[in-house]
Design a binder for these strands. Sequence first.
DNA 1: CTGAAAGCGCTTACAG
DNA 2: CTGAAAGCGCTTACAG
Lengths: 337, 337
Amino acid sequence: MGENSQENKVLTIADIAEDLGVSKTTVSRAISGKGRIGSGTRERVLKYIEEHNYTPNVIAKGLAQSKTYNLAVVMPGDYELIDLPFFQNCIMGIQEIASSFDYDMLLTVCNNADVTKLERIVRNRKVDGVILLRSFVKDVQVEYLQEKKIPFIVVGTSGYKGAVQVDNDHRAACKELTSILLMKRMKKIALIGGNEEHVVTQSRLKGFQDAFAELERPIDESLIYMNLDNAVLLEDKMDEIIRQEVDCIICMDDAICMEVLYKLRREEIAVPDQIRVASFYNSTVLETHDPSITSLDFDAKELGMLVCRTLLDMIEGEKVEEKTLLGYEVRLRESTK
Amino acid sequence: MGENSQENKVLTIADIAEDLGVSKTTVSRAISGKGRIGSGTRERVLKYIEEHNYTPNVIAKGLAQSKTYNLAVVMPGDYELIDLPFFQNCIMGIQEIASSFDYDMLLTVCNNADVTKLERIVRNRKVDGVILLRSFVKDVQVEYLQEKKIPFIVVGTSGYKGAVQVDNDHRAACKELTSILLMKRMKKIALIGGNEEHVVTQSRLKGFQDAFAELERPIDESLIYMNLDNAVLLEDKMDEIIRQEVDCIICMDDAICMEVLYKLRREEIAVPDQIRVASFYNSTVLETHDPSITSLDFDAKELGMLVCRTLLDMIEGEKVEEKTLLGYEVRLRESTK
DNA sequence: CTGAAAGCGCTTACAG
DNA sequence: CTGAAAGCGCTTACAG
């Protein structure tokens, strides 16, 4: 409370050095642990810091080291509502790892066509690396980052040579689920897919095809419907699918699956009695649905954690795997009984 | 391609000054527009910058100005899935304004009880201000930020003196919706509320009470149920509510509303024929539900934009309104026919 | 083991 | 109107 009290002044390394009668260099070394320093001196500095509640200015540190201790996370702007939990969980995973390494997460929402926001962040040197939450067949964000030589990582699978990727093993998962359904004696299986420009759509399709190939069953191409990520288009095609009297409908994602279920209810077609339904993705929505829906289960938070850890390794200049695949689980539920 | 080519070197203000034969001061002034400078000189500098694609290092600029050009957005960790779109839209609004002022958004997910993540960001001086996406009756985040004197703003209503708040006018909106239902001759209206610790829950309750008071109708306290943000508890109470043969159920948020609808369907109670249902919040889920559900509509993106603009004003040291309320719309749909 | 000094890339009084 | 110089708060060769 004294008039000359400096209790509100923010401590700097220089203040500490002065108070302790050592150089700033020494203080810096005590904190970072780098460089030789007497253990007695180190203790003294550390004790002082502890008592006075000093925390380094990360911005200044970053400037001196040409680092920012920030990561950019690019979230797609055109997500489906139902995909939000995936992104959210992934982000929670990223954040958990990032903050444990004293990194922060700068979030930006971008459409694939639009690199301007990403560009701003990169040009302003606000981040040390970038995480792309969605991958495109033609991906201008990847192209931009490769050109700028910024460390980055793609959540999902990317066709770009050299792009580091971490993904759930959609192909294997979709293959396994399809195989199970085939072995349950379903013969006419329709596949309803979303946006073909998303790499994940391609992977899921391949998994589906793999299952048929392995069991040496012919695929009826006329039962494969793509680009039905729009409710109106889907509605039309559903009439066609229903007319074909399929055993089972596999939906490539939960948004599509919800639409399909909605349509079937309106048409008073019973699941699973008249038709079976499964989804190549999983959200709690499907789990609590009545009947509960067979689907694939991926751990988005774990994915986020791995992604972040890998990116930090890259920033440190370590070599990392170009592609890592994570496991999955098949959840068989009432809809395919 | 020449061996001495510096095409990959990142330009600094010093390079420009040297090339142009002026001082760094002059270059800085040309860029910032601050301080007197000859218009000819300014033009030359600006032209050079344009041609050579120079962008300032925001980190260095920040260090010199003691600014970061970052905002922290604190998202609650215990959100309901159904609330995600609100947060997401709000974040989109924040981002849109922030980036137009060359600010970036640092996202962190925190529970109310846990200030450590927020603390890390503040101690590391990573941001110039903070946006809290949820408000609590007892709010340790607000307490921390007030103590540290960091500019911050609360999305929602806060009881803390001096905390700047931007909110939808939940109270007026809930009052209006309740009034409409009362005037539609509903007599026994049950109210099902969520977590009482959330300030928004209190506001909604007040709006409900306001409507009764204005029409001089007595409130039946036994029809007000709070803290039913848990599906199991809700299930129990729903049996009780159904037994009381109410006309109408108002749900305080969409998560609760979905559970209520689910329960009514299982019990084969028809909406709106046997019972009417309305929600004090709105998501697309309710809109596409069959029957469509009467609810309140708020514009989360607009809210985010206003919040961000206000925070930036505060950071600039401008005086701002302590509390701003945004409009709403009542969406009357089939469920209250 | 320790320190003086230069540097990271900007800004901003102060003096011409 | 313009510039030399100090400063923002750190780090890091280099020299003792």
